[in-house]
Design a protein around this nucleic acid. Structure first.
Lengths: 147, 147
DNA sequence: GTCCTTGCAAAACGTTTGCAGTTCA
DNA sequence: TGAACTGCAAACGTTTTGCAAGGAC
């Protein structure tokens, strides 16, 4: 699920068209996946590969890919959104100084001390969020606006 | 750490001025803390209490409070930021339908099945992030820009 | 009196939209 | 051919900024 070929195959399976712009974006996503790049970086890098590319197409493509589970959108405080090609659930270890994002595989039960022992990453703050349906909404899962 | 008085005390301890605008914002934060309100709602509600209040002051105040650890800023996909007065680390259970945010106390080791058993919240997606310092930055913790 | 805080207006920022033209299947 | 995709420019909503006036301590 992490190579260019496998992503192209996913597009075909889902009836999405394979265009030069999308190929260039996929190239960048795969090459720079450890960087978790933002839309502007993806746009700049992909434009080098396919000169016919606009920023709005980059956004449209990334949103389409997210909608199909090919990647995941990460939001940050005072940083543009960044994109995560790894579709499996994992912890993102985010460096407060350099902005690096380290992936850490997520077990159903985990111990944060273990994270530090295995990666050397010093945890100073946690942001843990589960998304889903609360007891009141669990029987009516249509997506509505926040109240 | 959750009453109006305790927050005012924190301001005094930190040399921050106690103004009518800040009192109104604190009122709203305390009254609506279970709602995790966004800046626009905080502004509207606080304006009812203190008619001399601008949106930019609301932002300045919320940022100042966040900087001092009085609250925490939460970012969302296609929703404005919302603010969390609970300074202890916890999991936010976010309903995909109604936008409700349920706090769940965070143990060092936890099991996501336990979350569902105890709250009835059906987890469909997880966003788990630890912030801190990676091995390369751990000895030089000044805050720099992301690279 | 001093520095912090405020309000206003304008700008910045990342992102989305409408629409006409183009391209992939 | 026809639906999907693209580029452009303009709009959007949230958040930040510069600066002069005001208020807390």
């Amino acid at each position: 699920m992490l190579t260019k070929e496998s992503i192209i195959q996913q597009l075909r399976e889902r009836g999405l068209k394979v265009t030069p712009q999308r190929l260039a974006i996929i190239d960048v996503l795969v090459e720079k996946k450890h960087l978790h790049p933002g839309a502007s970086l993806i746009y700049e890098e992909a434009k080098k590969k396919s000169s016919r590319l606009s920023l709005s197409t980059t956004y449209a493509t990334l949103n389409e890919f997210a909608r199909h589970g090919i990647l995941r959108t990460l939001q940050f405080d005072r940083m543009e959104n960044r994109f995560d090609l790894n579709p499996e659930e994992h912890i993102n270890l985010i460096c407060e100084k350099c902005g690096k994002i380290i992936d850490y595989k997520l077990p159903a039960t985990f111990d944060r001390n273990e994270v530090t022992e295995k990666t050397g990453f010093l945890i100073t703050d946690a942001r843990l969020e589960y998304y889903g349906y609360c007891g009141a909404c669990i029987h009516d899962k249509r997506h509505g606006g926040p109240s």
